[in-house]
């Protein structure tokens, strides 16, 4: 096994701070993007907490990866094509981790933190989960280790992916032309953070947007329906501890009231919004309701964009 690689994220931290400073000045001078003091403080507290909390289970995950690596299928050297394959495999595993982090409530309970801001700026990128290990995020890279990619190489590309995803959390950059065909961009990721029904559960990519195009989850940003950021049911707090644990509390309450194994599994591993009687709303329900409103409005001769923007006029 070769030397370890530098911790990319550690070196990026000063640049994260610098670029947030630049984006804040752009917001102030050119009125592009938007910051809110308490929201920013909550996001950055989540980022700091993520780094500190990550130190605890990090040793377990590293140990697990190295133990599995002892039983690898292939000996993959540090050649250019192994680096390339590792990058692609890590990015693909990220896509599936991220997709399931939205589609399964147990995993969503950790990832929901990242989507809990109603703002979309570089500080939102740092609003990271504190409970990723509990949500089993580490499982998704195990196949890569088993195949024979060095854990250090996987961590390198994981770090590169994290750093890459920092700069796409901005409203300052608009569309990026042909670059958007292959790579994840601010526009693609704005869609991912939006709770407009049109945009729900889309664009899970890390670095390469091609995975969304391949697996049918790509949705393009449209000017007729500007993204509104946050959650379908937004949280009412800036308290980082409540941000970090609110969905776990929700799961615990539901599980405490579960009356069967089906309900227990539904509340933990069903899609977010699942309920035994269908009284809550999943993404599928919300999209179906939106399509029904859209069809009704089109039938009445109203422009579709008006419906997608504000729903029922009330």
């Amino acid at each position: 096994m070769g030397e370890s690689f530098p911790n990319i994220v550690r070196y990026a931290i000063p640049f994260f701070i610098l670029f947030m400073g630049i984006e804040i000045v752009i917001w102030r001078v050119f009125h592009r993007g938007r910051y809110e003091t308490r929201d920013t403080a909550a996001s950055l507290a989540m980022g700091l907490g993520n780094q500190i909390v990550g130190l605890l289970p990090g040793g377990f995950v590293v140990g697990l990866y190295f133990a599995l690596y002892e039983h690898r299928l292939f000996d993959l050297e540090r050649t250019w094509w192994v680096f390339l394959l590792c990058f692609l495999a890590e990015d693909l595993s990220y896509y599936w981790f991220h997709r399931l982090a939205h589609e399964r409530r147990w995993m969503w309970a950790a990832h929901i933190n990242h989507h809990s801001s109603q703002h979309y700026n570089l500080s939102t990128a740092l609003r990271q989960a504190w409970t990723s290990t509990l949500a089993l995020s580490f499982l998704f890279r195990l196949p890569l280790v088993w195949i024979g990619f060095e854990p250090a190489m996987i961590f390198l590309f994981g770090g590169i992916s994290l750093v890459y995803q920092f700069w796409i959390h901005t409203e300052v950059i608009d569309r990026m032309g042909p670059f958007e065909w292959v790579f994840n961009t601010p526009s693609h990721h704005r869609v991912h953070h939006a709770f407009n029904p049109r945009y729900l559960d889309a664009n899970y990519a890390g670095v390469l947007i091609i995975w969304d195009r391949i697996f049918g989850t790509f949705v393009e940003e449209t000017a007729a329906d500007p993204p509104r950021y946050g959650l379908v049911k937004n949280i009412a707090t800036f308290n980082p501890f409540k941000v970090a644990f609110h969905e776990w509390v929700g799961i615990a309450r539901d599980v405490a009231g579960a009356r069967s194994l089906r309900e227990l599994l539904g509340y933990t591993w069903g899609p977010p919004g699942w309920s035994p009687d269908g009284s809550r709303k999943t993404t599928a329900t919300l999209k179906a309701e939106w399509r029904a409103r859209l069809a009704a409005a089109e039938g009445a001769g109203a422009p579709a964009a008006a419906v997608s923007d504000v729903g029922d006029p009330g």
């Binding site: 701070i17 804040i24 910051y35 980022g47 700091l48």
Partner: peptide, 26 residues
């Protein structure tokens, strides 16, 4: 302890929050 994590990051966080407050208030 890592100085980037335990000194640079907290100071940077305070700086960013301060700048946001200066420009946007509460």
């Amino acid at each position: 302890l890592d100085p980037v994590l335990f000194i640079v990051a907290p100071l940077g966080v305070l700086g960013v929050i301060g700048l946001t407050w200066l420009f946007g208030g509460l």
